[in-house]
Design a protein around this nucleic acid. Structure first.
Lengths: 248, 248
DNA sequence: CGGTTAGTTGAGTGCATTCAATCCCAGTGG
DNA sequence: CCACTGGGATTGAATGCACTCAACTAACCG
């Protein structure tokens, strides 16, 4: 069960930035929050609820009646599509600042949102509040378009890797992608602290966990990476990028 | 080379609907054109150029400097990502009314746009005209958001099929998807006239042409479909849908 | 008629999967 | 303190599905 955290506005508080975590939020200048000047940001944040989620907890489930739109402020989460047969395809991993829970089918969430890391924190915006804000704020509408475009490109890129690359190249490509994402978020990108399990990675790449494990071993034997528990050290970025392009 | 067709406005013509094909356009009420009342539609169409493309011709290429945004008015096209190794991943097929050429990376097209059927006709909107119109017209901004959302869902759905289904199920799923798309466009959907080659289907599903061919044969032997040249007749829609879900 | 392109089918290979065993580690309770 | 347990990861052996290579057919066109 998600735990409610800081209320957006302390009782009797004044709507200034001091009452809010936004100035220190890693997502302050990404996608939907980026175009908002302090006053608009304050108004946007006032309808928001901060929530904390434990690993493997669902932020929302495919088919559930539409609830909040979420923006990650800490941790790593995933968007996934479950199959009737019990399998699932992870469509993308989310980093702090990323938005999820936006897409819907006839008033229901289109996908699952799942916490991947031990501690995930979100700003949760009630749908009406979110939609109303986008409708009244042109810059925010533009930001949503840009965000959707970026996500569509990212998903398309990933689909290309899934359709065309053999298993080892897929894993190498995954590591290069994560490296770039970590770097873009100002996180350590030579040594990646990956909270996702082999199952998560397999569900993302369309591979079995044993195949993912073997691919990691292969890359390690080639001295492209080093493994130590949850951390992956990229020893040879250029070599890894080459492995991500072709061949097993 | 694309052939220029009807200019948007006949010389000396008056900007009324009589001069334009919009009222008879199959895409008149889809995505970006849908929210435009006749006057706005006329203004939007006035900056447009109609073009005709032959099979396998590129509307635009990944990496090329950004040009027009395209809306199909006839035929079937595809959006694809080419790999350095010469392979390509087809990301989606486009039907009349669908838009492509919108996504960009730093002023360059992100993907290829390719004509799949023998005759493809487009409305081609110069980038500035398109962007300016979206910026000045709120309803159009909303329409672009909805379109991007729908495409993102579609691509995600396809990625799920690619990651989780074996070859025969993937082909069955492809046929079900095309059936739904044909039906949604008011086209005959029991007997599908598929203009794409086995290579196109393979590039879409992440399979080799021989595997696609064998999957078609398997589905035919199970009496789920019948094959005759470019047309596929769906004999057992429920059975085909079941085959699309699981198992080889 | 020969040349080309698209599609089908067969034979054999190889890569990812399945099945299974083992290891490691953290948590728990005797 | 240590045995037990469960989840995650790794590795091995064997299977099977999709791929590669190749032959052949059909349709189309010069």
């Amino acid at each position: 069960m998600a735990i409610r955290l800081t209320p957006a506005l302390a009782p009797g508080g004044v709507p200034t930035d001091e009452n809010r975590p936004c100035p220190r939020c890693p997502g302050r200048h990404t996608n939907i929050c980026q175009p908002l000047e302090p006053r608009a940001l304050a108004a946007f944040f006032d309808g928001c609820m901060r929530q904390r989620w434990a690993r493997h907890e669902f932020l929302f489930r495919s088919g559930d009646p539409l609830g909040s739109v979420f923006k990650l402020t800490a941790g790593i989460a995933a968007v996934a599509k479950p199959l009737p047969s019990g399998e699932r395809q992870i469509l993308r991993f989310l980093m702090p600042g990323d938005v999820c829970g936006y897409l819907s089918d006839d008033g229901h969430y289109s996908f699952d949102g799942v916490a991947i890391s031990e501690e995930v924190v979100t700003c949760s915006f009630p749908r009406e509040h979110f939609d109303g804000f986008v409708a009244r704020n042109d810059a925010m509408g533009v930001a949503v378009r840009l965000e959707l475009s970026a996500v569509l490109k990212e998903v398309s890129q990933h689909m290309t890797a899934m359709g065309q690359l053999p298993s080892t190249a897929r894993v190498a490509n995954f590591l290069c992608t994560m490296r770039a994402a970590f770097a873009a978020h100002g996180m350590e990108s030579r040594t990646l602290d990956l909270p996702m399990t082999r199952t998560d990675i397999g569900d993302y790449l369309g591979l079995r966990i044993e195949t993912v494990s073997r691919a990691f071993t292969t890359l390690r034997r080639r001295r492209l990476i080093a493994l130590d528990g949850e951390t992956v050290t990229i020893l040879d970025p250029a070599g890894l990028a080459a492995a991500a392009r072709r061949a097993a």
